[in-house]
């Protein structure tokens, strides 16, 4: 069945609300409005204001309350409108959700799921458009998911809710309208393994989330030039699937990391480091990176596009890695 990423995510939330009465959704405008990205459209009407709960404009408060509810046996899904606003709740996420198990000697786990939109491309300016999931992937105690396909949008949430620890799900804003084929019986998926989205033997394109579609497009263009790229979708940023990263590099001997986050001190830096640590002698070319320009993401359309990774840049980096068209 043909569906969109947005609808798949909504189906996942709906199923969770139906299957477990401990589950509830809360956040800004998630109720009658249906969410600022229309993910929860119709759920308020179906489940009512107790289970699809609009909150005051208090990110720290509703994440903190989500932690409290999770500690007491509930299974909250907290929606933060954009990753930029998650910074208002950073203390609750990093100092609390991620540490309470440790600081209670294992007595309090926090089965909280936080969903948020990330990324640029919609002319929302520097305070609504950043890609900060790499920061969160730095923090022990959190599990970081980046669904990039309709299957993962449909399937990751339930597995995340079953996880005993706090899970953050980053939904790239450009993916909501992505449509794809979803099996009628599609359901929960794993949240620990990376996935090869395209097989190839010449170069590995390693990416996740919002940059998966453009990376696949780049792989198509490279194929037309005779370069077979393998595309690895990380899916989970913490913990990283080291084995899958290693396997593809051992296969192709060349790697390009595509990450919409900024380059310095980033997830792409971490992946590059891991490749050099564990597969240095497998490499036939330096690890390359395609990241966002290190500027606040601009509001002007052309500048915003110029700041972001593009299929063209991935193609250029891959050509360079294989030695000018290999």
């Amino acid at each position: 069945m043909e569906t969109t990423y947005r609808e798949a995510m909504r189906t996942a939330i709906r199923e969770a609300l139906l299957q477990d009465d401990r589950v509830f959704l809360m956040g800004e405008d998630v109720g009658a409005y249906g969410g600022c990205f229309a993910v929860s459209l119709g759920l308020f009407e179906e489940f009512g204001p107790e289970r699809v709960r609009d909150t005051p404009l208090s990110e720290s408060a509703f994440v903190g309350a989500g932690i409290g509810a999770a500690l007491n046996g509930m299974r909250p899904i907290v929606e933060i409108m954009t990753v930029n606003f998650s910074l208002l709740a950073l203390d609750q996420i990093v100092n609390n959700a991620a540490t309470l198990l440790h600081m209670s000697g294992g007595q309090f786990n926090v089965p909280l799921v936080i969903r948020m939109t990330t990324g640029a491309g919609r002319q929302l300016g520097a305070q609504h458009s950043h890609s900060l999931e790499g920061w969160f992937a730095h923090v022990p105690g959190l599990r970081i998911l980046t669904p990039a396909t309709v299957e993962d949008a449909r399937g990751m949430l339930w597995t995340a809710l079953e996880d005993p620890d706090p899970v953050l799900i980053f939904e790239h804003g450009s993916l909501y309208n992505l449509s794809g084929e979803l099996a009628e019986d599609a359901g929960p998926v794993d949240i620990h393994a990376a996935a090869v989205r395209r097989e190839g033997g010449d170069v590995s394109l390693i990416t996740y989330g919002g940059t998966l579609p453009l990376t696949l497009e780049a792989a198509d263009r490279l194929a037309a030039e005779g370069i077979e790229a393998e595309v690895l979708d990380l899916r989970t940023l913490r913990p990283l699937d080291d084995a899958a990263i290693l396997a593809t590099v051992v296969k192709t001997h060349r790697a390009v990391v595509v990450d919409e986050g900024w380059r310095s001190g980033s997830l792409s830096a971490e992946i590059s480091a891991r490749i050099t640590e564990s597969a240095f002698y497998e490499l036939d070319a330096p690890v390359a990176r395609v990241c966002s320009a290190e500027v606040p993401i601009p509001y002007a359309r052309d500048l915003e596009l110029a700041a972001l990774p593009s299929a063209e840049r991935v193609v250029a980096a891959a050509r360079e890695a294989v030695g000018g068209g290999g």
Binding site: S264, A293, E294, V295, P296, P298, D302, L303, A306
Partner: peptide
Amino acid sequence: VDPGPEALFEHVYAEPHHELARQ
């Protein structure tokens, strides 16, 4: 007039910055 592509790296720092210049 729409900003030109060179405007992308403006106003990130008040003073010249070597990493940004390289970029």
